[in-house]
Design a protein around this nucleic acid. Structure first.
Lengths: 238, 238
DNA sequence: TATTGTAATGTTGTCTGACAACATGATAGG
DNA sequence: CCTATCATGTTGTCAGACAACATTACAATA
């Protein structure tokens, strides 16, 4: 089959064409979050298609997370998630996956601590101390304690001043968070809690020194300790 | 507003319910890539809805990349991309973004080289040498030369034996590849090429020694050199 | 017997019209 | 001023029709 002939014959699917047109407007900024799309009736008239085609196009945009429809009102452009990286979460994470992702997390978190030592702001140090207090003060080690812990790490990633550290470490945290919840619910020994709190405090203090080497070492110690506490043997060379 | 009342009142959007049902079947494996979905007519009868609702559900699934429709034939489940991590590429990458992503890439690639030194297979070493030959032999430094270069790094990531290294480094490579193409098109000095080839050869040879520390150091040297060659000053502590 | 052409049937793509359900704004009544 | 009702507009769903494409079966011809 001559591919030139096939190209001539193929007519683009109408809903996809219209969905692409609006996606383009959203991505290039001429349609902003909160903006209302034209009514279905108006779009059908403007593009010279049936309302069915318009509705299927909106179904596509909805599925892509770009718009939401409100019955009786219209379709509105959604805020695009600040998140620029997405980790597939369709499959439940088994122990091997967790170990693999944890292994990848280690060099990232260590580098983030070093960069945060150099680049943090006063506000970020305050936020880090607040997260540390939430870790220390929690009465729900496996619930809000995990949230505070992951917040602590996210704040460090943000303090690198490099958005990708924030994005990647945030994505990884989201993916492993429920595994950590389960691990903490199953074992709440007091010395485990005490070590975890001490290690986080040491990281916070190390970052405050502004010395990247010290900060990196404190994070390394915590990640090793943390892995051992959940029975993980992780090979790494950082 | 009492949230219990709101829960009772809210009826889920029909196309979304049907799309979710099929997405579930696809994710849990009862529908496999290549399988044909029931006809629209049959689905409408089975679910007791109009064909419009079914079509909007299929539009959603199509938009999620889970199915493709063939006119006159039916809708078929698509292969799910092996990729489990997605980097948003809606926005063009500027120099600052490139530097930030490169900064994050450094600890990952160094750790990957170390792990690859320990875990590589004979086939992976052969593939790495083949990619190295493609780098060395290319007459199109900015085209197939870049492809070979990124393949080289992907093979190393795969040789870690940890799928997340492959996924993350692959995602990053896809995102920065066209920037590298442009950089190489703009400057093709012979000593730049010679250094790049020598550094890749050193990495290949270091991984072959099975010594993670040596491999890590070779990758570090390359990443520093590579950054300098494109005029990037990157702060890192690995 | 093998190949080609045609007809029948089935399926997706699009259109039209109608009504249900929801939302908003204006107006009237207390 | 507040509440209820009505009118109008918009999305959600249904039903029917026809276009466009795909597949299969059967007949005609070499």
């Amino acid at each position: 089959m001559d591919s030139g002939l096939e190209q001539i014959k193929r007519v683009a699917h109408l809903p996809t064409r219209i969905a692409s047109e609006f996606a383009k407007r959203i991505y290039e900024g001429s349609l902003q979050p909160g903006d209302k799309l034209p009514t279905e009736h108006m779009m059908a008239k403007t593009f010279g298609v049936s309302r069915t085609v318009v509705r299927e196009a909106i179904a596509q945009l909805r599925s892509e997370g770009l718009v939401e429809s409100r019955q009786g009102v219209g379709a509105f452009v959604l805020e695009r998630p600040a998140r620029q990286i997405y980790l597939d979460d369709a499959k439940a994470m088994d122990r091997h996956d967790f170990r693999s992702l944890y292994q990848l997390r280690i060099p990232l978190e260590m580098e983030a601590a070093a960069l945060a030592a150099v680049h943090h702001t006063t506000a970020q140090m305050d936020a880090l101390s607040a997260a540390l207090s939430r870790i220390t003060d929690t009465e729900n080690w496996g619930g809000s304690g995990v949230e505070a812990d992951l917040d602590f790490h996210r704040i460090i990633a943000e303090a690198t001043g490099n958005i990708y550290f924030g994005q990647f470490i945030g994505a990884i945290s989201d993916r492993i968070s429920h595994v950590i919840v389960i691990a903490r619910t199953e074992g709440q020994l007091e010395d485990v809690i005490a070590h975890t709190i001490e290690e986080h405090t040491a990281i916070r203090d190390a970052i405050r020194t502004k010395d990247p080497v010290v900060a990196r070492a404190a994070m390394r110690r915590h990640l090793i300790g943390s892995a051992q506490r959940v029975g993980l043997s992780i090979e790494f060379y950082s």
